[in-house]
Design a protein around this nucleic acid. Sequence first.
DNA 1: TTGAAAGCGCTAACAT
DNA 2: ATGTTAGCGCTTTCAA
Lengths: 340, 340
Amino acid sequence: MTIVEIARMCGVSVQTVSRVINQRPDVSPETRAAVEAAIERVGFQPSAVARSLVQRRSYTLGVIAAGLRYFGVAQTLNGITAESEASGYALLLKEIASSGQVDIMPEIALLMAHRVEGIIFAAPDLGADLAEVRARLPRASPPIVFLKSDPSAAFSTILIDNHAGAREATRHLLSLGCRRIGHLAGPLTWHEARDRHSGWLDTLREAGQTPGPVQVGDWTSASGASAFEAMLLADPEMDGVFAANDQMALGVLSVANRRGIAVPNELALVGFDGIEEGAQFTPSLTTVRQPLRELGRLAVRELIETAEPGPDGAPVRALTLAPELVIRESAPAARADDAP
Amino acid sequence: MTIVEIARMCGVSVQTVSRVINQRPDVSPETRAAVEAAIERVGFQPSAVARSLVQRRSYTLGVIAAGLRYFGVAQTLNGITAESEASGYALLLKEIASSGQVDIMPEIALLMAHRVEGIIFAAPDLGADLAEVRARLPRASPPIVFLKSDPSAAFSTILIDNHAGAREATRHLLSLGCRRIGHLAGPLTWHEARDRHSGWLDTLREAGQTPGPVQVGDWTSASGASAFEAMLLADPEMDGVFAANDQMALGVLSVANRRGIAVPNELALVGFDGIEEGAQFTPSLTTVRQPLRELGRLAVRELIETAEPGPDGAPVRALTLAPELVIRESAPAARADDAP
DNA sequence: TTGAAAGCGCTAACAT
DNA sequence: ATGTTAGCGCTTTCAA
């Protein structure tokens, strides 16, 4: 079923059918009605493929994601789908392994073959890798937005200010009177993990406090539990922990509850991410909420503005979104024993 | 940059370039090398759009998903991306609202416009809606696999045996000596929620036990907490709870811990899903793990077998996957006070 | 082993 | 308001 058949059925030219399909004004109401009726009757769907070919526009965006099973990525993807839906763009999704030196050139090539008009790179920034990716990009590649990645002169980036979020978390622990604040970090190959770590460290240094123990986890709650055990061994005096994500913070709570360490009175705890379940942890989790849906949304907007440049053209931008401290029981506004 | 330019550069016909691109054998080694070199040099990417048009094959699958931010859907999508990647298919993703009487015809139409070769419907089965969807489907629609939905004669379905999983969970609670087992259900508009509820109910009836209180949540841990409060009010004697997902089970734990209800000794608890974090809950969560990645994988395989029919053609199938009980502390193999 | 011609389903540009 | 022509970038005949 093609446009030609519809034209034949209605006794008009293909062009007229095309005009009806594209809602052009220059068609008489009767003709339009007849064509629309025919289209409806046979259930005709104009081919986006043919249209893409002739218009050299696909109205499609590509997404390269890693770790869909993680809250953060899934949440970002949710923002991406919402915004692209609203803007009338289709989405081509590629998931890559979330660890290891994966070569993403094949993924980029595939998206380019499909003539996507922009690419959102929502995989973790493993530093050197990404610099190389950027260098090796084909010259004709469509605009790419790198999420949660270092700004660059050549590409748009949108990131969440992990350093500031970590500072807020750590300052909150300090304000609670913690004297020995440890950090449960994510894998330090990750950009986010490094920034959260340095935010913690900088804040303690500025406050003139000796940093507590540091352990590295792999973002899972299981790793959080074992890392926290190691931190306790390293410094039994520890009275505060800033965990680089909520899952690992859950691991801390698990061990603390098991050992009878009272949270927040003996040990205050702040996580990072803002997963919904944190409100139901025992005790509920103070955390730093990331605007992840917003991140996804902005990424799409950025690409579409490049594809459909407005008056100011298509700038390479570096946006930064601010996370927000969410105070709950694991590190309350004031300690219970400080209360009157 | 097109195939024509490459041909011109190499002094051969477009056909020869096409042959090289498609790895056809009938090209002399020298010609092939020259063409490949030219392609490499200019970074040429053959257009999948043009190829789709002429071949009438897109090598693309469509996914309609809802609730990407939920563990289950994200996990399924992970299986879908893995398998389609392995099979050389691209993925067009559409997310729809996870509640309300959404009309998905526009989504189907969009995917059809892009000439996808199959559609995976990974949104919740809200009963009547889906029956209607099936009835109103355009005749020329590509094969559709419905996930977690009632079997039908016209469409392939893959589902997880929620009823059996719920029975296993409930039987486990019975084996622990629970006499008053409540159920924290999901929204009963969901197929899964209904099956889990009926699995619980049937098991108790067969065992000759009076069913405990039932409350309906919305899958979130916050709703689980308030629903559990209501259940406690309804029946203070309750000594076992089967929750329809792990998040809501977390809500139960939260309330139990706060009120000093000892889990599992005073109240045994089983969840559903198998989220990773369950192992770090306090206490760790006994649950029914769903093979969600496998679900996604099979959906893709099913569609590809239809698109590329083997010797037996393209059957409409109804597959059922079995979930698996994972025993942890919240409902252990034997109660602590039963131990020697 | 290679090439020429035709056409996939649609829209842009120019007719009328 | 409608039709004609050309062509998007590729593959599929068929011919050499």
